[in-house]
Amino acid sequence: MALISTTPMLEKAKQDKHGIVAFNVHSFDSIFWVLEAAAELKSPVILQTTVGTVTSLGAENIVAVAKAASEYYNIPTGLHLDHCTNFEVIKEAIRAGYTSVMIDASMHPFEVNVAETKKVMDLAKSLGVNVEAELGKVGGVEDDIVVAEEDAEKAVPEECKQFIELTGVPTLAPAIGTAHGIYKGKPKIDFDRIAKIAELVDVPLVLHGGSAIPEEEVRHCVSLGMAKVNVSTELKNAYSEAIRQHFLDDPDALDPRAYLQKAKEAAKEMAKSKIRMVGSEGKVVPAFV
């Protein structure tokens, strides 16, 4: 199966009241074990990369590997560029074959965010590429984008409605109290704000900072209209912790096939738990296959 636009995936998920996990991948092998996890659970999935990963691996290389993996596992797969502030990088990703891109102009005034988002929409819409934008400021660290806790701002529901009307963007990531990375305390998600935004707009919403949020809270977010749930840190940590434990157990066991297999299995189990959490297990339908 070729890579597909995330727009119909997320619209169907919103309609059916389940989510789709977007997993940040940082290496070529991670693309395969994320799709292997999704295939075993018969779930649609989104692979997403940061700008740093594109710089490290190359957009065309990522697309080639993602295409090969999606065809091998025959699972509906989107490929998303996350949190990009650079229009030239977005063009590069689209040209290479990404099926979804995020323009993050949330650090700018509302009018500038609208203008930057429309610029990307003008490029992507005719090509069937999904566009995601952000309103408010999600706290934490994502690549080189750092938003201190005191600078995080929640999205204003009425502005979300106006933003969709002005830009036509098909997916929106409103800041609702989550943060990137692992939380130092209990996340304070504004469920009433999510409900109000979902009432005013008809596009799928995106939950950023999905790592380590209690499962029942993620499910509540999904039930309110958040169709895309981003997961990065927990996946990285599961993979890396398995490698660290391997060498703690046996410092001289240097065969990479051994420790990478352990890392893959740990990360796969983490990915499966997130797929089950959002309710997308078994959601591969004949229309996609």
Rank of each mutant, 00 (worst) to 15 (best):
T7A: 00
G225S: 04
K118D: 05
I94C: 13
N24Y: 03
V201C: 09
E132S: 01
E142C: 10
P187R: 03
L41T: 07
A148S: 15
V54R: 12
T7H: 00
S43V: 06
P8E: 10
A66Q: 02
N61Y: 07
V156N: 13
L79T: 09
A115Y: 09
I75Q: 05
D122F: 00
S56D: 07
E36A: 07
G181S: 12
A13D: 05
A13T: 02
V141T: 15
K228V: 03
E40R: 13
V169D: 08
K12E: 15
H180N: 04
R257D: 10
V203H: 04
F247R: 00
G78M: 08
P76V: 04
A2T: 04
E149D: 14
S30P: 01
F288E: 14
A13Q: 03
V147R: 03
E241P: 00
E88T: 14
M121P: 03
R257V: 01
D29P: 03
K91L: 13
L235P: 07
V25H: 14
S27M: 08
K118Y: 04
T77A: 12
A238K: 14
I176F: 10
I164T: 08
E60L: 02
A133E: 05
P286A: 13
E158L: 08
A195G: 02
N237Y: 08
V129H: 01
D252E: 13
A59G: 11
E165C: 01
D190E: 11
V65H: 06
D250H: 08
F288W: 15
A22K: 01
V112N: 12
V285P: 00
V222P: 13
A124N: 11
I213Y: 09
R276F: 13
S106L: 04
E11A: 10
G128R: 09
F110W: 07
P8D: 07
A13I: 02
F32T: 12
K161R: 15
V21H: 08
L3S: 06
F32P: 00
E199W: 11
L57S: 10
H26F: 11
I145N: 06
L79M: 11
